Amino acid sequence: MFAGVAIAANLAAQALVFAVYTGPFPLAAALAVGTIVGLVVKFELDRRLIFYAPQQDAAATGATFFFYASTGLITTALFWGTETLVHLASGGAPGSQYVGGFIGLTAGYVLKYQLDKRYVFRG
């Protein structure tokens, strides 16, 4: 359920970028903004409601976030690659990036949970 919230936040942020951004490389801009929004939302949900991490001071939370984001590098590559490939394979059909994004984020979050359980929230 929480992964669904993060996916919705990510894809909504992407939709906002597509709606307002008129510069070069709109897909890359949307991916970057969506990734940042999804990362922050998913971190807070995971930290508080999935792994029940204890309260920490700002420095410790920052360190935890760094490790959390680090495990996300692999899953972000999976998500970006899937979204981009589906979009390109469809010939750039409108909305195709969201289908690819949903598939990539879903697969990435399954993997990310295992990585976070093992390396980030080991308590």
Rank of each mutant, 00 (worst) to 15 (best):
V120Q: 11
A69S: 14
R118N: 08
A29S: 05
F65N: 02
G95V: 11
A30W: 07
V41P: 00
E44L: 01
A58F: 06
R122W: 10
T22P: 12
V5M: 12
G81C: 13
R122I: 15
G108I: 15
A63N: 06
Q56R: 11
R47E: 10
A77R: 03
Y68W: 00
T64S: 08
V5W: 09
T106D: 02
T106I: 12
T64Q: 13
G81L: 08
P94Q: 03
Y119G: 06
A12F: 01
A6M: 05
G95A: 10
A13Y: 06
R122Y: 15
G100Q: 06
K117T: 13
G100N: 07
I74K: 04
R118F: 11
Q56I: 13
A3R: 00
L73I: 14
G101H: 11
P26Y: 06
S90W: 05
L31P: 03
G38P: 12
G62T: 01
T71R: 10
S70M: 15
T84V: 04
V110S: 05
L78R: 15
V110L: 10
T84H: 07
I74R: 04
V33Q: 15
V99E: 05
V20E: 09
Y68R: 06
G23A: 10
V86A: 12
L27C: 02
G72F: 01
G34M: 01
T82R: 08
I74A: 09
V33C: 10
Q97F: 00
H87Q: 09
V120I: 10
G101R: 04
G81F: 02
L45K: 05
N10E: 03
A8R: 08
T71N: 08
Y113H: 05
